[in-house]
Design a binder for these strands. Sequence first.
DNA 1: ACTTAGCACTCAGAGGTATAGAGTGCTAAG
DNA 2: CTTAGCACTCTATACCTCTGAGTGCTAAGT
Lengths: 345, 345
Amino acid sequence: MALSDRKKQILKAVVDDYVQTAEPVGSRAVVARLKTNVSSATVRNEMADLERMGYLEQPHTSAGRVPSHLGYRLYVDELMNHYSVAPTEIDQFVSTLTLRMGELDRLIAEAGRMVSELTSHPAIAVSPVAEEEAVRRFEVIQVDAETVVLVLVTTSDIIKNRICHLTFPLSDLEVSAANRALNAHFTNIPLEQLTDERITSAEYDAGADITELLIAAIDFASDVLNTVMQRDVYLEGASQILKYPEFHDPNKAMALLDCLSDRNALSLLPMPDSEHPVKIQIGAENKTSPLDNASIIMTSYHTARGAKGLLGVVGPTRMDYAKVAARLCHFAEELNHLLNHDTRR
Amino acid sequence: MALSDRKKQILKAVVDDYVQTAEPVGSRAVVARLKTNVSSATVRNEMADLERMGYLEQPHTSAGRVPSHLGYRLYVDELMNHYSVAPTEIDQFVSTLTLRMGELDRLIAEAGRMVSELTSHPAIAVSPVAEEEAVRRFEVIQVDAETVVLVLVTTSDIIKNRICHLTFPLSDLEVSAANRALNAHFTNIPLEQLTDERITSAEYDAGADITELLIAAIDFASDVLNTVMQRDVYLEGASQILKYPEFHDPNKAMALLDCLSDRNALSLLPMPDSEHPVKIQIGAENKTSPLDNASIIMTSYHTARGAKGLLGVVGPTRMDYAKVAARLCHFAEELNHLLNHDTRR
DNA sequence: ACTTAGCACTCAGAGGTATAGAGTGCTAAG
DNA sequence: CTTAGCACTCTATACCTCTGAGTGCTAAGT
């Protein structure tokens, strides 16, 4: 059943007011906010309807109304204003990030920090990962006789390294043999096929002496591919959550923070897809109880090689969705520009 | 003026009790805690003395006593028990970290996480850095025609990488020329001498074509050396601070968290030195006001190459210094073992 | 059929007061 | 020097009242 236009305006007014004040909204406050000249009694009737339909809730009999999750949902999907973002904010975002171009992990973390700062909410940044990640390039760097650094570059330009202490010294020749063998036999292979049996063929090429090194490299590679799939997660500006009265209770705040810093819990996040580039998850829509009063706005960005990462913001359900979503959206777009067009530096 | 033995015992009892209960400690509670059979009146007299001397404080006339910073200081320096740490905790610490050996930055972050978990306090982990950091090894890895990854290994085995998009394609020969030039001319040079003028000599060797690459590499190197000097700082388990009643006030909690995630503020940390391997900073002993009610326990660890990093714990001044310091100490030691002896993967 | 004025009713929160109890300092005796 | 006893202080708690915001309902107006 569709809502009348006036009901929608009233719902919108309730949300807008509640977002600002954090106090239940009474009929008079709604009247003050509406352009149309109706009496508070009329609004009361409408609000009673809206409550019956599940869009509003009443903390107790003689209090104003508060939006329910359903109410927020309708607001977000249909009613909210679409903000534009101040150019100065975008400038700030871009210029801070430009300094970090090239160091992808730092860049992502820094993007999270900026988002958090500019939205006044905790932010989550998830490092990018391609659908089919594989090792594109190995490099064995010898740092002393028995120590090498293994560096690998994945399909989506993620760079990982690991230091590796061997039990025997290695000659220059062996190092370059290992390099050749690794790049010849173990690049551009999806994770599933990167199994130990492949080592046999490589051994043949490179000489059995360096098997230990090869095993370490393959180990590392499959480790990396595994953990890259798990993604790096950065939680920035966590303390901001304490600004919101709904998280003044230390237990609630702690539950939320713990949940946000647990990367496993993040798999429950609303993933944006092509249909909904900005995904908004409101309160109990997610199953994890600590997130009951929390909403998450998520969007994605992508690198030049098409790997997708996430950028999101967490706040109380009573959140200025319009403003925050707009900012998040713009920032993600700017990040895309940075990652894709600005090839210099 | 030295304190009588009994006064010390009473001070110790007050601290021990207060640490447990978070409530001002009365004379009766002290009597219950002391082995010696004295009356509460006697204890009251002694406590009045201790207050006059500045070791105790009274929130209000009819309340028990609370240790002052001075009281904690004396407790920490002379009075506290020396705990031993349960082997199971150490095992847990070591076995979790062993999985991360080789990826230094992850290892350090993970160590922080474990410390936080096992002490129930937020933990700070600072990545290691040697006194005189320099680039030990460069490596230019070509990933496609116009893209290279610059990897560098510093004196203390810190590995950093940066992706670098050039404005022209690069041949295999040029890449290896750049590699040779970089390693020949720019390794083992302290930061101060790593200036652009050195590029001239390298150009000569490698051919002017790759100047852009060389400049990027040197840029990167000096960047890295600069930021390595600034160190990576990991704050783990921040939310734990909310468990302590002294930080139930969201403003205080936020001020502290903000301060802890600000790496500049961390320069004010108590650095452990050879004389005091475990440094304890109590409340207002540090100048930053948000840390008024907070204490920090810090210790250091070092890598095989002698680079020193920090591991620390933050809590309310009312903190179980004995237990926490003991654990922190042991964990740092274990970290040293891992970093220095266990050269196998 | 919708709107609105009026009114009785509800309830959370503010403010005030009394009470209990923990703890003190002081005094005087052991 | 220690301790029992006692008067005193002060917070925290409970309980009360009162206020005001906000409601739902009814009945009259459009």
